[in-house]
Design a protein around this nucleic acid. Sequence first.
DNA 1: TCGATAGTGTTATACTATAACATTAATAAA
DNA 2: TTTATTAATGTTATAGTATAACACTATCGA
Lengths: 155, 155
Amino acid sequence: MTQPCTEHKECISKAMREGERVCQDNDQRFTAVRRRVLEIIWETHKPIKAYDILEKLSDSAGKPPTVYRALNFLLGNGLVHKINTLNAYIGCTHPREHAQCFFIICKVCGTATECCNSALNGIIQETAKKHNFTNYTASLEIQGVCEACANSPPS
Amino acid sequence: MTQPCTEHKECISKAMREGERVCQDNDQRFTAVRRRVLEIIWETHKPIKAYDILEKLSDSAGKPPTVYRALNFLLGNGLVHKINTLNAYIGCTHPREHAQCFFIICKVCGTATECCNSALNGIIQETAKKHNFTNYTASLEIQGVCEACANSPPS
DNA sequence: TCGATAGTGTTATACTATAACATTAATAAA
DNA sequence: TTTATTAATGTTATAGTATAACACTATCGA
Ligand SMILES: [Zn+2]
Ligand SMILES: [Zn+2]
Ligand SMILES: [Zn+2]
Ligand SMILES: [Zn+2]
């Protein structure tokens, strides 16, 4: 099993408060579906797939467009990020602090951690400038093996 | 229309020679299907989708598994890269020189250019180290507006 | 209360990718 | 050369990811 985050409930409620706040700031409605999807995303604490979210929704709301609409809303408001290499979604740990997030993902246990840092931002900005690109966003996904998984004995 | 690359035929034939060479080095067979798929990929000079490659193959070979098998072969041998944010594939301009490639992609005209550089590699390596990750690969995709598109008058 | 807008439900369908197994081609061994 | 072995391809079906289109409902401001 994956070690449960000790402060897990704390994380979820913090994320929900952030959601509340962001929606208020952006003059957006934080509806029941959107709430529930954000909650589900935070409950796993790992990248989760759209159709897995679907399964966790009650039957009445459980259709693809419902989930994708909620996801797109959350993505648009910076509350969630998409991991493109996995076709999966994960909650943002610090919305309102940045426009984009970088991730380092363990191929073994599936954890994805934000690894945003200013050095990375700087080099990426330089790279964009060197190529005369404007108005850019960046997606960086590093996939490797985390320390815990590297140390755990092979099955 | 997209401006044709003046050295276009040159690019294709160079890519094919590279393919030849890489397959030889890796003791792999550069079959007709694999050749043709690599050629199609280079003919567009832009990220191309699997099903668009499919359409350009003759009917006899035109089934999804054929294309995906060829793509996976080419990816595995470093002759092609996948652009995850676009679900598309593009030829590598310098196989054998690096394990991974970074891309800067114009949202308007669709061109994707490799923007690998050692500063980026360095920071990414540092980031992986800081998180105690080993055995990593990185995917970086910068999406913005290229100079030409920024300067072209709005329609 | 009414009208406009935003959000959701629902059905269908488009797009992306692989599983599974039959067939053929290439290589190695007898 | 014949035969086994393996690698590659053909073929059918299906899994997995995402959106279009339209009907319906809730919300909010006149
Ligand atoms: Zn974030
Ligand atoms: Zn791990
Ligand atoms: Zn490359
Ligand atoms: Zn452009």
